[in-house]
Every structure is written in structure tokens, then in C-alpha cells.
Design a protein around this nucleic acid. Structure first.
Lengths: 186, 205
DNA sequence: ATCTTACTTTCCAAAGC
DNA sequence: GCTTTAAAAAGTAAGAT
């Protein structure tokens, strides 16, 4: 029996940082190839990195949001690329700006089909949200790691809202034991 | 002081007018849907609770009224799909769904997932199918749901597929299009659910 | 009938309306 | 509240072939 924890895969990491300098996004948009900037639509400039793949949202304040990376290492690598690109444009960028991971999206597999109707009752209707007419996943909010889990009939799940990779592992452990206690796994 | 007093009366009157508007909207939509008076009463109670709990702030009166009616239909065991509800409301489906989930959570309505069987009598009646077909459709839903096939699936599509299968088994065939129209799902959904259900039932293909 | 594309849900930061 | 970005899960839908 494979431990569901071993099936955990990080799908997306969101992080924020800042270069400590105000920016003229109009000129950055002109000089940075591949930059998308439409202030009418959104105040941030969008810059995509290829390796690792990610999208950075660069703001006038110099603050930056990076999303789409597959690991915390990739977030750092992507942002290093962004910092270097800005430096190439003669923009001052702090030595190594603090990067804060804000959200990690993970997927996992319990390896068994789930009866979501039974789980909805078992976990308590007041604790979950399950509206298959609107979305096929059951929404389960955990307190302990403060994350949100989406459980599917296939046994696959998505865990989001965590700040550290271990949050997902703890969440999977809790979900597995809760379901086992209820006799709703296997 | 006098101004404050007048203001209170003004806001009280405004609040009263808003409540009257919401209740008349619930009445209008309930009539259009043809649901019994008990459903309107449950919907009004839910709306008044939402009002008391101050859940309407930042949301439209119409949206909360529609969501209250949607919840009431389910609570009374005669669900209408969001699609059906949105046809008699001026609020779009997505907004009704969001508002419903919000008030449901905040008021602790503890709504159980919709049982597809609840749609069988109405859909079959619209299709002029016999009692025999209804019984067969319920049996298909019951047995396949027990095997876990229902997880994550839309109740209307699930009921539609079972009704389609039952109509074939009882020699009262309706086309996928006809069933899809009354259930307001696509033929593709009926086809997909139908295949899974007959396979799980061990019936011919 | 099947394929592709797209939309539903969850999370989070950013600046501004 | 909204706007934009990214990503997974699975169901549903629309338009094209």
C-alpha cells in the first residue's frame, strides 16, 4: 500500500517579494521583451520566465508576485531571472530580496475511490461544502494545517492554502486518519 | 434629534420596503416554478434569517431571495436545478450558486446533497412516462449510487441518464434529446452517465 | 459521435477602482 | 467586491469536425 503522502506533488507555488525600488512600468514594458502591460486592465506588468516556467507580476511599487513555479526552489530561480532582467535594464535591485512563499498548491492520490456523499455526512455537513451541481469536488477546510482540501470521487485530491510543503503532508495524514476512523477509506 | 428620528423611520421604511420586495420576488418566482406554498414559507424564513444575520450586505436582495428559494426547494425535497431557478430570476446562475453557498454556510443550513431520485417524478411526468419507468429509474439510481457512481456527478444529469435507461428497458423509449431537454443537460452528459450506469447494473449495452 | 477548448471550485499576493 | 497570474482535480458544455 503506497503511502498517500508519497503521491504528493507540488503543482504551483505563489510567492511575493520586492526589489526595494519604484519602477516606471511603461518603460520597463518597452525594454523587456515579452512583457505584457495593460494598466487599464490590471496595474501589474506580466513577465513570463521559460526555465523554470513561471509568471511574474511586477508592480509600480517594485513589489513582485511570482506564480506558476513547481517548487520553492523554482520560485527562487525564476525570481533570480527576473531580478537579473531588471538589472540589465539598469534598474537597481537589492542584493537578495526576501522572498515569501504565500501559497502552495498540491495534488495527491488516496488510491481509492471515495463516496463523497458518505464523506459529506461523516465529516459533518457544517464542516464541508459539497455541491456536485456546481463543482465535482468536496471542499474540506482544515484548522490544523490551515489549508483547504478538495476531495474527488476518484480519490485524487488538491490541497491549497499552505505556506510550507510539509503542510500538505500533514493535511493528507489528517484526512486519511479521519476517513479511516469513519470507515470511509478502503 | 428630530432629524435622527426621521432618519430612523426612513431607514426602517426602506428596510420594510426591501423586505416586501424580497418576499414578493420569492412569491413571483415560486409561482413561476409552480412550487407549493410551503416552499415559499421556508424561503421567506431563510430570507428573514439572512436579513437578521446581516448576510445581505454586499449582495443583491434579488440574489439572496433567489438563493433562499433554491435552498427552500431542496429543503422541502422538491429541488429545482440552478438552471431552472435562474430562468425565473434576473440573477445569473453563477451568482445564485455563490450566494446560496454563502448563506447556506453562514446560516448553518446543513444541506444534504441533492438526491437524483427527487427529480424523477417531475421529469418523467413532463416526458409522459409511466409509473413503471419511474420505479425502474429510481432502482437504477439507487443501485448505481450504492456502487459509488454518484460521487461528483450532477444530480440532474444522473437522473436524466437513469430515466433514459429506464425508458429503454420499459419499452417506452424517449430519445436522449427529449430527456436532455427536460433535465436541461446535454446529450453528451446523458450518454456518459448512461454508459456507466448500465455497466454497473450489468445490463446489456 | 468525438475532439478541442473553456469554464466551474479552492488558495494567495500585488495596486487600484 | 472586482480586475490578473498559475496550477491541479473532474464534471459539464459549446463549437467544430
Amino acid at each position: 500500500m503506497t503511502d498517500p503522502k508519497d503521491t504528493i506533488n507540488i503543482e504551483n507555488v505563489v510567492a511575493s517579494t520586492g526589489i526595494g525600488q519604484e519602477l516606471d512600468l511603461q518603460s520597463v514594458a518597452m525594454d523587456l521583451e515579452g512583457a505584457d502591460y495593460d494598466p487599464e486592465q490590471f496595474p501589474g506588468l506580466v513577465y513570463r520566465t521559460q526555465n523554470p516556467k513561471s509568471a511574474a507580476l511586477i508592480f509600480r511599487s517594485g513589489k513582485i508576485v511570482c506564480t506558476g513555479a513547481k517548487s520553492t526552489d523554482d520560485v527562487h530561480e525564476s525570481l533570480r531571472i527576473v531580478f537579473d532582467k531588471l538589472r540589465e535594464l539598469q534598474i537597481q535591485v537589492n542584493e537578495d530580496p526576501e522572498i515569501v512563499v504565500q501559497n502552495i498548491v498540491t495534488s495527491a492520490d488516496l488510491g481509492r475511490n471515495l463516496n463523497l456523499n458518505a464523506i459529506a455526512i461523516g465529516l459533518g455537513l457544517e464542516n464541508i461544502e459539497y455541491e456536485p451541481e456546481q463543482f465535482p469536488g468536496l471542499v474540506y477546510r482544515l484548522d490544523d494545517p490551515e489549508v483547504v482540501a478538495l476531495l474527488f470521487g476518484s480519490g485524487k485530491l488538491v490541497i491549497t492554502g499552505g505556506k510550507k510543503p510539509v503542510d500538505a503532508e500533514h493535511a493528507v495524514d489528517k484526512i486519511v486518519s479521519r476517513l479511516e476512523d469513519l470507515g470511509l477509506l478502503e | 434629534r428630530l432629524r435622527k428620528w426621521q432618519e430612523r423611520i426612513r431607514t426602517k421604511d426602506a428596510g420594510e420596503r426591501n423586505l416586501q420586495f424580497a418576499l414578493s420576488e420569492i412569491d413571483r418566482m415560486a409561482s413561476a416554478l409552480g412550487v407549493p406554498r410551503s416552499v415559499r414559507e421556508v424561503a421567506s424564513v431563510i430570507y428573514r434569517r439572512a436579513l437578521k444575520e446581516d448576510l445581505i450586505r454586499g449582495r443583491s436582495i434579488e440574489g439572496v431571495a433567489t438563493s433562499a428559494l433554491y435552498a427552500a426547494c431542496r429543503k422541502e425535497g422538491i429541488p429545482r436545478s440552478l438552471e431552472e431557478i435562474s430562468e425565473v430570476s434576473r440573477v445569473e446562475r453563477k451568482e445564485i450558486g455563490r450566494t446560496y453557498r454563502y448563506i447556506s454556510q453562514e446560516l448553518g443550513l446543513e444541506m444534504r446533497p441533492v438526491d437524483p431520485k427527487k427529480y424523477v417524478p417531475r421529469f418523467c411526468s413532463e416526458l409522459e412516462l409511466s409509473e413503471e419507468v419511474q420505479t425502474k429509474a429510481n432502482e437504477i439510481i439507487e443501485k448505481t449510487a450504492e456502487k459509488g457512481l454518484l460521487s461528483g456527478k450532477s444530480p440532474t444529469g444522473y437522473a436524466a441518464a437513469a430515466i433514459y435507461a429506464a425508458s429503454l428497458l420499459c419499452n417506452e423509449k424517449k430519445t436522449q434529446r427529449e430527456v436532455a431537454d427536460v433535465a436541461q443537460v446535454t446529450e453528451v452528459t446523458i450518454r456518459n452517465r448512461y454508459q456507466e450506469q448500465i455497466e454497473a447494473m450489468g445490463i446489456h449495452g
